[in-house]
Amino acid sequence: MIQRAIQKLAREKLEAKAIDLFLGYARGTLPGRVKPFAAAGAADCDRLVWNENCDTNLVNYLARYPGKKIGIVVKPCDARTLVTLLHENQVKRENLFIVGVNCPGVKTGVGAEAAMQPQCLACEIRKPPIADVTLGGPVETAIAPQAKLAGELWDEFKGEMQRCIRCFACRNACPLCYCTTCFAEQTMPELVYPGNDAAESAFFQLGRIMHIAGRCGECGGCERACPMDIPLQKIIRKAAAFLEETYGEKAGLSVETPGALGTFSPTDNNSIFL
């Protein structure tokens, strides 16, 4: 069982002092929720859980423990964001003990009400691209490949931007949003004023997408974090699909190669130019 294997690995590594802490999940306070949990000693390891609700991307927490040796549980999408961070020299590989889990998709809710989260339906990467140990059996790819189709237009975009309260949960939940000062928080000049104007929310969201495009591991963390339930993955998925289609690159699969926007070819598509 995966949960037992995670506990065992964490305990062994912590007891052997091979790692300083182990990032996993603990039981949450609501049905169908888990919370991120950092096990600091062997005694904490019994609290580690693994179930289909383990959705939070733990890679987001690596920056919190600079210089520490960390064990971490990653799903394939989480691992893709980790690959991007490794490529960008944000974390050191030698400081990590990565427990990958082959993932059939995470769910919201429990029992009969459990529903597959949207990013998982079309997911084609079911095996972590980077891991020291991989748990769980092989998983079939895309459950509903048609869900991958992003469509041509997010026609509700304007309405959704009117709903955005700019709490920045999407940004803070994203492991790739690690700028020390986000463009939305810089003050000289002030690019995004406080408040909830739709125009500036659109500016923030589109600006953020441009920062994430070509790097995003499609973990769905931004959309899950949104207190207003704005379907941010629509545009995230569009960006990923467009990059794959146009440049043939999928983000976060190899530490050696930069994302689609980190490189170029002299023969790239020139169609948008007058």
Binding site: F37, N60, C167, F168, N172, A173
Partner: peptide, 11 residues
Amino acid sequence: DGCINCGGCTY
């Protein structure tokens, strides 16, 4: 715990 310092709760 896992608090990521977003402002969702306060808004």
